[in-house]
């Protein structure tokens, strides 16, 4: 009788990579729902566009690399990349923005580096940075959140705007951004940054319509949504707590100290934690295992580094938010972090 040959161990317990990635998608749901509530249904079109592009690009790349077309899709990582990128950009950005970004993320950042598991940089964030650098106008066109916005677009109007860059009535996104008093609204972080340079104090800035309870109106709820999803991932052991904790620590501790010394110039830790892409970054982006550090000690350092870089760039850098830049910079440090946090192997200690 002939029996089957297999390497040990025989049996397996962990969730597979594709299951893990599916869980990441589930965990994004609360944040995405809130985001679509505050910024309109555009985000769904962006996600659909990104998914389509990612799947096609992934298939094209695997075929070009002489592998079966569907082999690389099995692990679901391209889908996660696409969704993360889609929810990072303004929801009314023109269609070609997300297409270019996703193509770059999948083709250049992922496959040119050797495909799944070989990419040095977080593909979604590299795609985001490409877009931010190349199309600064489109990438900063965030609408004011729906609760304070003059306009709210229907599904059709949204689709029209994404495809033709104008609403059916001929308004540009730029015009839609104008608030009640005709003043263009920016994101809360952008507002803080520009108004501070004009000599206003934070107390005055927080009086603006962009802000409510703890941080930016709307943005705070979206961040809380991603926090909930992130906690779910930790509870499900899809991610470990080290990176998010390091991330939030690296951001909030310096922010807290700076806030004590200059309460009118430096936003406090809560504002930082609930603004921009903080929570999305902490739980979904920095925790991408491929481009993060591997040991637990290394992960804490990696998270701290990202958080601290975000604090530095938000406070003194050129851009209002900095999650993408901070993640990419920390990605570059990963080999170094891994090297110096390698645990002592059994029998090699003193």
């Amino acid at each position: 009788m002939s029996f089957r040959i297999a390497p040990s161990p025989h049996g397996h317990n962990q969730r597979t990579t594709s299951e893990m990635m599916r869980w990441v998608c589930y965990a994004l749901v609360p944040g995405v729902l809130l985001q679509s509530f505050f910024f309109g249904p555009g985000i769904w079109f962006q996600i659909i566009l990104a998914l389509g592009t990612a799947v096609l690009a992934e298939m094209a790349c695997t075929v070009a690399r002489d592998r079966p077309a569907f082999s690389a899709l099995r692990d679901n990582t391209a889908i996660v990349t696409a969704i993360l990128l889609a929810i990072s950009i303004p929801s009314l950005a023109p269609w070609w923005v997300i297409v270019i970004g996703t193509l770059f993320a999948i083709v250049v950042v992922k496959h040119v580096y050797g495909g799944m598991g070989q990419n040095l940089f977080n593909p979604a964030m590299a795609g985001y940075v490409l877009l931010l650098i190349s199309f600064p106008v489109q990438m900063t066109n965030w609408l004011p959140v729906s609760t304070i916005s003059e306009h709210s677009l229907t599904l059709w109007q949204t689709l029209h705007t994404i495809v033709f860059e104008y609403t059916p009535a001929g308004y540009s996104v730029e015009q839609l951004r104008a608030g009640i008093d005709g003043v263009t609204m920016a994101t809360p972080l952008d507002t803080i940054k520009t108004e501070l340079t004009r000599g206003y104090t934070l107390t005055e800035i927080y009086q603006g319509p962009e802000f409510s309870y703890f941080a930016g109106a709307g943005w705070q709820w979206i961040n809380l949504g991603f926090l909930v999803g992130g906690l779910l991932l930790i509870q499900q052991r899809i991610i470990s707590w080290h990176i998010p904790l390091g991330f939030l620590g690296g951001l909030c501790i310096p922010a807290f100290i700076a806030h004590i010394f200059a309460p009118d110039l430096m936003p406090g830790p809560i504002v930082h934690a609930l603004s921009g892409a903080t929570m999305l970054g902490a739980f979904f982006i920095a925790t991408d295992p491929v481009s993060a550090a591997t040991s637990n000690r290394g992960r804490v350092i990696f998270g701290l580094l990202i958080g601290f870089l975000i604090f530095v760039i938000r406070s003194w850098g050129g851009y209002p938010d900095a999650v993408a830049f901070a993640v990419l910079l920390a990605n570059m440090c990963v080999p170094l972090i891994d090297r110096y946090t390698r645990p002592v192997v059994y029998g090699h200690g003193d």
Binding site: P136, V137, T140, N141, E174, T194, T197, R198
Partner: peptide
């Protein structure tokens, strides 16, 4: 100009 206020200011 679109997207920038600091520079013209």
């Amino acid at each position: 100009f679109t997207g920038a206020t600091i520079t013209p200011r």
